[in-house]
Amino acid sequence: MADENGSNLKQFTDGIVNNNPVLVQLLGMCPMLAITNSVANALVMGAAATFVVVMSNTITSLLRNLIKPHVRILIFTLTIATFVTIADFLLKAFVYDVAMKLGPFIPLIIVNCMIICRAEVVAIRNGLARSLADAFGIGIGFTFALLILGVIRELLGAGTWTFPFPIPGIAPEGFIQIMPSSFADNGHNWVIMVLPPGAFLTLGVVIGVVNWIRSKSEGGA
């Protein structure tokens, strides 16, 4: 039993660090690049994707003995599309402004290879507990990767960090100004960072840094 728990915990942490879906496995790149121009977008997208991967892993894992091998992809897509639509409704109902900004990238979670990959690799072979541990790990790992990019790009591009809703005390107007306001006033902000090329360049550098750290730690161990 203890062993079982241990492996679930490992499954969870693996999703965040060793198997990080974006930075290591290079899955789910599209939202990673497209919506990370602000911290708020990154957080909402991460939450939506986590919701979908958790629900899809749950359903797949519960039905794993009933699913015939050659219709499995169809069933995965059907499940994911359904929960993405629900996530879309939920976002429009509760964080309307950010949902409007994300636009088509919410429905595009359907074709995020990360989610279908988790159903195929983990959920169809394992019990509910393990699939859930995996889903949460992957979801949080994805959100974490989005956040890294969002934090860098918004900081350099606009000098602020925005949140999906106002946080009393810290960010009463929904954003905090990190750089001095003269940064953006005098046009010193790097607009390129919030434009498409900035996304590619930042992600390239981040992937390089991650690889460098990984090779260091492997060499040391």
Binding site: L63, L66, I67, K68, V71, L74, I75, L78, T79
Partner: peptide
Amino acid sequence: DESWLVLLMG
């Protein structure tokens, strides 16, 4: 036999 699950889920 093959597709009842898909239909039901649909």
